[in-house]
Design a protein around this nucleic acid. Structure first.
Lengths: 115, 115
DNA sequence: CCCTTATATAAGTTAATACTTATATGATTG
DNA sequence: CAATCATATAAGTATTAACTTATATAAGGG
């Protein structure tokens, strides 16, 4: 693991994207499980457009992939990205966000989609 | 390794610092061996003030430590930083810069200090 | 002591970034 | 198809960031 090398440019771009507090938080959740926008809006203390704009940056950088399911758009990690293993290392070094996801469920604010 | 967790804020700050291409390059060299400013000026395609300003950011962020030796100031990794292990993982995932350091020596541009 | 070398800081400029509010698009449902 | 919910985009703003040039500081060597 983490033994393949990737370009410095690619890596610095990934790190720049993860180097924003709110985006890093978003990635923590998306790493735990795929999330839709409205869930992230609940989980992160930011407006919906702000979340949307961050997600676009993450998608443009290739870090996440989007998938529309009905009216929701779900985002998940892009496991094919060059820096995926590195991202895993980074996200694993952080405290778990599981409890926050649990709380979201308890509040009935998680989205269940059968598409 | 990488099993201790650190705060998201601390990590995002480190990643922001490493998320700049030129700073990441600088850290690659400093990780390989301690470097003085004039060496980094040779190794990186940036002006001396630009290098100096980046180094100050890295120092303010606690990522590196400085030590004056005569007229030179050497910078080395701060092994006590909370994110040191994570930084190691990141830097190890990048292609080696050893050949560039070798070339510096061959050109007689490396600094040998006996203090 | 000057003079040079090494490094840091100051000040200014340009561009990028992270938001905000307002609005548009897109899908679902009654 | 009108109303609603979910999401994206547009436009504007304030802050930050990464440089540049010029100058200051600091150490070392005739």
């Amino acid at each position: 693991m983490a033994l393949q090398t990737q370009t410095v440019q690619q890596t610095s771009q990934t790190l720049k994207l993860l180097g924003d507090y709110n985006r890093l938080r978003m990635m923590q959740f998306i790493y735990e499980r795929e999330c839709c926008v409205c869930e992230l809006v609940e989980l992160i203390n930011l407006s919906q457009p702000a979340i949307s704009q961050h997600l676009r940056k993450l998608r443009d950088g290739g870090l996440v992939m989007e998938q529309r399911k009905g009216s929701w758009v779900f985002y998940r990690m892009n496991e094919d990205h060059t820096t995926f293993n590195l991202m895993k290392e980074i996200l694993q070094s952080l405290p778990s966000v599981q409890s926050e996801l649990d709380e979201l469920e308890q509040d009935g604010l998680n989205v269940i989609c059968h598409k």
